[in-house]
């Protein structure tokens, strides 16, 4: 029983790291643009399909297919911001329309994917076959890989925000747009990067779990809701919140599967959401800026 519990907690961490990747992108967009992106789940979905076709049609190995998919979704993110968000932001008094536009974009991309890729679920083989047993705890190499890659990328992303010139600019825009402009930061340009980078992170998440969950046009929808829960629990606009919230939610869901049953998974995560909204509506880290 103890062994099984530990295994489930480890599985929870794997799932949590995926949630953290997706939620940190949402959180980045909220932090710098103060808007929600309902099409974030579709960027996640596109990342999955891009990885699938890079591996099956182009025959690339996973470690080449994933960066390619991330780069592709980065460009899609740039395009979405440039073509749908920016023209709306230019109109004074249309402050909330970009959010609605992302909702429309989400529906459009889902149906476009259905048309182009078809409704059949697509599966990829494990990137690394087999599993290892450590101290009596069994763990598939694929899950270990997910954990290692996600943690590495999140650490890199945090370092990028902390130390790089662009990362500093993104944080500056999140804290004070006018002051950022006065320092010579092109705020509109950082919005494009915000969309692109958050999309690339979602694409990575999607690619890593593609061998475990099936790739399909609707895969983004449920995940997006989970990512919103993570953001609210952790505190919107805070990277630490997205990471901690992701881990918490992933672990709680995995434990619910073993302690209750798999149908209770979503009940547990939404119960957490309700409790957090009740006792601490601003999340673990409040709504502090980055």
């Amino acid at each position: 029983m103890i062994i099984q519990l530990i295994e489930q907690i480890l599985n929870g961490l794997v799932l949590g790291s995926i949630y953290a990747l997706v939620a940190s992108g949402l959180s980045l967009i909220w932090g710098s643009m103060k808007m929600l992106n309902f099409a974030h789940g579709e960027l996640y979905m596109l990342g999955g399909f891009a990885t699938y076709y890079a591996m099956t049609l182009l025959g690339l190995p996973w470690w080449l297919a994933i960066p390619l998919a991330m780069a592709l979704v980065l460009l899609v993110g740039f395009g979405i911001e440039k073509l749908t968000i920016e023209p709306l932001l230019r109109r004074p008094g249309w402050d909330y329309t970009p959010i609605i536009a992302t909702l429309g974009l989400s529906i459009f991309l889902q149906n476009a994917a259905l048309l182009v890729f078809g409704e059949r679920f697509k599966n990829l083989p494990y990137f690394i076959e087999g599993s290892g047993t450590y101290f009596g705890i069994r763990m598939a190499y694929q899950r270990l890989l997910i954990l290692v890659v996600s943690v590495a990328v999140i650490v890199l992303f945090a370092q990028f925000l902390q130390r790089s010139k662009l990362g500093m600019a993104l944080r500056a825009v999140a804290q004070d747009r006018d002051a950022a402009t006065l320092q010579g930061i092109d705020v509109r340009g950082t919005y494009m990067w915000t969309f692109g980078i958050s999309g690339a992170l979602a694409a990575l998440a999607s690619a890593m779990v593609a061998p475990i969950f099936a790739i399909n046009p609707w895969m983004g929808g449920t995940l997006l809701i989970k990512a919103f829960v993570v953001c609210v629990v952790g505190g919107l606009g805070d990277l630490r919140g997205a990471i901690l919230g992701g881990i918490l939610l992933g672990t709680a869901e995995s434990l619910a599967v073993v302690l209750l049953s798999s149908e209770w998974k979503d009940v547990v995560s939404f119960a957490i959401l309700i409790i957090v909204l009740w006792v601490r509506p601003s999340g673990f880290f409040g709504t502090k800026e980055w």
């Binding site: 500093m168 500056a172 804290q175 004070d176 002051a179 950022a180 320092q183 930061i185 502090k288 980055w290």
Partner: peptide, 14 residues
């Protein structure tokens, strides 16, 4: 209008 969550060094650098 400083960037309140950033250090003095970061503010100056920006």
């Amino acid at each position: 209008c400083l960037f309140p969550q950033m250090s003095v060094w970061e503010n100056l650098t920006l």
